[in-house]
């Protein structure tokens, strides 16, 4: 039987994209992961502040520290992206402004995350020599 609905009308009638639960859960998982990571981060910052540059370099070069640092920064910027995304979605309603700000948010958080991870890995792989 022929459908009298246009393709656009059908698409509009489909409603939500259907991945809201995954997005919602991802936000919580990131936040929960940051609880131990941030506590470790504060502890680490206190230790590093009490020592000199050479100590910091060899500290970052230790695999456990480098791994936790990468996780801390990666999850932090992911969490930052999630949080700012919700702010934009809640308060910006003009399609073009919203799309632009969501893209900007993703790019800035992605750039900051990539830069921080590369910096940690650079010290981790070349450190200890200084």
């Amino acid at each position: 039987m022929a459908s009298y609905r246009t393709p656009l009308s059908r698409a509009r009638g489909l409603g939500a994209a259907g991945h809201g639960v995954g997005t919602w859960l991802g936000e919580r998982v990131g936040g929960i992961a940051l609880v131990p990571l941030c506590l470790w981060g504060v502890f680490a910052a206190m230790r590093l502040a009490a020592h000199d540059y050479a100590y910091a370099v060899q500290w970052v070069a230790q695999p456990v520290n480098a791994t936790l640092l990468v996780l801390l920064f990666a999850v932090s910027f992911w969490h930052m992206h999630d949080g700012l995304r919700v702010v934009v979605e809640d308060y910006i309603h003009k399609t073009l402004s919203k799309a632009g700000l969501l893209l900007l948010n993703l790019f800035v958080c992605g750039l900051a995350g990539a830069l921080s991870i590369l910096s940690i890995l650079k010290v981790a792989f070349s450190g200890g020599v200084s």
Binding site: R28, G31, L34, V35, C38, L39, V42
Partner: peptide
């Protein structure tokens, strides 16, 4: 930043409990 971090951390746990 220390104060903000701990406030955000505790309030985040508060939100998880609400969830």
């Amino acid at each position: 930043m220390t104060l903000s971090l701990f406030y955000h951390l505790a309030n985040g746990i508060r939100h998880v409990v609400w969830d």
